[in-house]
Nucleic acid binder design. Structure first.
Lengths: 341, 341
DNA sequence: TTTAGCACTCATGCAAGGAGAGTGCTAATC
DNA sequence: GATTAGCACTCTCCTTGCATGAGTGCTAAA
């Protein structure tokens, strides 16, 4: 039958996790004896119990102990206490971000770059995307004889555009008609309305099939405005961590560059800062790695995510508050740009 | 005194390069004997001469020979004959690229991704950027109480925008005034005029300092439109090549993500497809790697570059024609979008 | 319940030895 | 005079054996 999970056992687990995070080596009983005022033998007994509980494991018979995923999870959820960010740290982060948002994509990229540098891990952000945002402005600009550029601005401050080929050219008449239609019928509609191909319907409604290609381009533009893009930085940092050797590194980088599966993980994590252990995702490529993820929001609307990807034994106590601050700061900057309080 | 560089020596050099490219192992005299209808002893003599000429070298006394940078350069310049691309290959490439340009950035990214996948190396493209392109259209769209979005379209089909904070808000009057000014004074000017901060001058010319922030945003927008962006794909492919182990891989990836130095290399390479050997660049991070680079053009104007980054012993004979075709195709697609012939 | 002591288990590092690949040189051959 | 066969020599790489040391589990004493 299972041993009981006493308070002291938890303390020992925490100590093992901390030491293991620092050194990356299995931790033995002796190295903890001093810290905890107990003999190594006592600790050995306790560790043996912890192993039985599935919280620690041994790489081989005569090595020290290493926390299991379950052990780590327990630590992260209950044992860890976050190290608050100093004012200095905050200022450092502020300095790495733009003072105001000139372009949401640029902001997201700067944030990812800063976060990667700060944590020595890979960092990922999504560009702000909100399919509840609405169509704010639409413009159609002639580019060449047979092409126009369709541009759309959303209420979330995102500007997107598409080049659109119109066989036979475009007359000023057509443009005006299109713009009028857009103003009357489309302004204020949420982007989510444009995910599916309702182009046809709209074109018919417009009563002019020659505008179909422009309508199609506009729809694609709006659809893409609702789509979050993934910005990845600091992949090379991952290689520095001994944890990712050979095969594993290739798999991990390849996974990250695939984009979609990573997006899914970002979306599925909940409210505030979340720790996701690689093993828990079922993704083979994420073995031995961990993510710390947080959404950022404008007002009470989730606009995107920011996250750190590193070895599962990264320094959560420090990274979590940093990430939290990043998310807060990004939200703040975006809100400022949109005049929202 | 130096041995003469006979025809047969060149043949042997070529054979060494080819075999080395395939296997990555130093190549011995025996393995070439069969191919060239000579005894291994003869080849040994010749190889010894080639070593004296600085074209081959030995990792250690009793290993086979490896081409030096000089040897590789000679091979690339004179000995290699490109393998023409099959129609099938061309179609495959066509299928991986969009059928028409909807957005230049998307095209560049798709090309990089396709190229990386095809070559199993890293690939890089720059977004089209031409500082001789001109200002085609300018728009200012109100976003919120205190912000507007300044958008600009260039003659090269690039649409860029910036969010711009205007303390105190913006009146329709101001907007109209600004647009009129832009239409009259700025349309047709080359982007290169906006690289330096001539904002002040223009604002004074405009006679209304309250428009200064908008003018500044416009200038930044136009400056950024002249700036090529770097799109990198397939970094993880590099790790698969045994050539990049440990330290070297970190340095290389880190170098790539730095961006600027890579841009410099892309810009400095000449007319058509160029092979750049890492050693020749003086960049330590590029040791053991090679680049194949080509500009792509619209009309006779260079708009950007596309390149492959891999181990210096990559398969140039195949990669060069592929890259050439990519460059041709990108140029073609862009030309189509701009109605140029 | 805690601790000291001890036998036991493995990973790791190092030295020695053998196998194999490839060379350079010399002398024979075409 | 160029080419080739033969051979001694040099190095790397792999294997094996052995010593070392960290760490454990168990038992018996405190």
């Amino acid at each position: 039958m299972k041993p009981e999970l006493t308070d002291r056992k938890l303390q020992i687990l925490a100590a093992v996790v901390r030491e293991y995070s620092e050194t990356g080596e299995p931790v033995g009983s002796k190295s903890l004896a001093a810290d905890l005022n107990l003999s190594s033998a006592t600790i050995r007994n306790e560790m043996s119990d912890l192993a039985e509980l599935g919280l620690l494991e041994q790489p081989h018979t005569s090595a020290g102990r290493v926390p299991t995923a379950k052990g780590y999870r327990l630590y992260v959820n209950q044992l860890m206490h976050r190290q608050p960010l100093s004012e200095r740290d905050k200022r450092e982060i502020d300095d790495m971000l733009p003072g105001q948002v000139e372009d949401p994509g640029v902001l997201a990229e700067a944030a990812a770059r800063a976060l990667a540098e700060l944590t020595d891990c890979a960092a990922v952000t999504t560009t702000p995307a909100d399919d509840q945002a609405t169509v704010k402005q639409v413009r159609v600009l002639p580019l060449s004889r047979q092409t126009v550029v369709v541009a759309a601005l959303t209420s979330s401050g995102l500007m997107k555009s598409r080049i659109c080929l119109v066989e036979g050219g475009v007359t000023p008449d057509m443009l005006e008609k299109f713009i009028r239609f857009a103003e009357e019928q489309l302004y204020g509609l949420p982007l989510s309305d444009f995910q599916q191909g309702l182009t046809q319907t709209l074109a018919v409604q417009m009563g002019d099939l020659s505008l179909l290609p422009i309508m199609a381009a506009l729809q694609e533009t709006l659809a893409s405005a609702a789509q979050a893009e993934l910005l990845l930085q600091g992949q090379s940092n991952l290689l520095k961590h001994r944890r990712f050797g050979g095969e594993q590194a290739v798999r991990l980088l390849e996974f990250l560059s695939r984009g979609r599966p990573l997006l899914r993980i970002l979306h599925h994590s909940g409210e505030g800062v979340q720790v996701v252990l690689g093993n828990e995702t079922g993704e083979e490529a994420l073995e031995h790695s961990g993510l710390v993820v947080s959404p950022y929001r404008v007002g009470d609307r989730e606009m995107g995510s920011i996250g750190v990807i590193g070895p599962d034994r990264m320094d959560y106590e420090h990274i979590i508050p940093s990430l939290e601050y990043f998310a807060y700061r990004i939200g703040r900057l975006l809100s400022d740009a949109l005049d929202e309080e």
